[in-house]
């Protein structure tokens, strides 16, 4: 294996992956939190009980989530063009990634919020707390431990997504492993790439577990 030649390309791919993953985590994480909270609070009987809104959000999540990402990334092309201005390259890959991540994270957030004891929300209401206040000062803090674990889980899913960015010329480690490993029968390149991805994922998992433990140890 020729690192003289492949080294700089590998570093570029690694940076592309990190950039794609981090931007997706930030944007998708934030929007996913908002949509997830929206799903939770609009459920019948919850803080902003709006069955129609809940139904729409729920269907949207159910439609987007099962689409295989490798198809999704190309299928949203027109929308990507509208938002990013191009359908090729790393920025063009970030849009579908953040889009998909938003809905996937929304479901994870919703599922974690459901575990919050409704009695605690009721107590806050009984004290005269407003609904928005309850969301940020009671609902999210009460679910913080499981939310951190949920986000860690989603981080790994996003790394997985980034491997398919190559389909639209987004580069990244996945693309690198296919192009220089698989297609050139160079198993060493594939394995080294896999090892690096495992390290990234492990780091995230250790960090997530540590954070959740810190929050939950009370």
């Amino acid at each position: 294996m020729d690192w003289e030649l492949l080294g700089p390309t590998f570093i570029t791919a690694l940076i592309q992956t990190l950039v794609m993953v981090l931007i997706t985590v930030v944007i998708g994480g934030l929007l996913g939190l908002i949509v997830g909270v929206g799903l939770y609070v609009t459920r019948r009987g919850n803080l902003y009980s709006q069955p129609a809104v809940y139904w729409i959000l729920n269907v949207l999540v159910n439609i987007v989530r099962p689409i295989p990402f490798v198809i999704f990334i190309t299928a949203v092309g027109p929308l990507t063009l509208l938002v990013v201005g191009t359908t090729i390259g790393t920025p063009a890959a970030v849009f579908p990634m953040a889009f998909m991540a938003t809905f996937a994270i929304a479901r994870v957030v919703e599922q974690n919020l459901v575990t919050v004891d409704p009695g605690v929300i009721e107590a806050a209401r009984a004290m005269g707390a407003g609904r928005l206040r309850i969301i940020w000062s009671v609902l999210v803090p009460e679910a913080l431990g499981p939310l951190i674990l949920g986000y860690t889980f989603m981080f790994i899913g996003i790394v997985d997504m980034s491997a398919m960015a190559g389909v639209i010329g987004g580069g990244g480690l996945g693309d690198f492993a296919i192009t220089y490993g698989y297609q050139q029968y160079n198993w060493a390149v594939t394995w080294i790439t896999v090892a690096v991805i495992i390290v990234i994922v492990q780091l995230a998992q250790v960090l997530g577990n540590w954070g959740a433990r810190k929050v939950l140890r009370r």
Partner: peptide
């Protein structure tokens, strides 16, 4: 209602304390 509720305290069977 929020003002009324500030004047009406409530306690619960399961205590409903904020675990966080």
């Amino acid at each position: 209602l929020r003002r009324v509720r500030a004047d009406v305290g409530m306690i619960f069977q399961q205590f409903n304390l904020f675990s966080s």
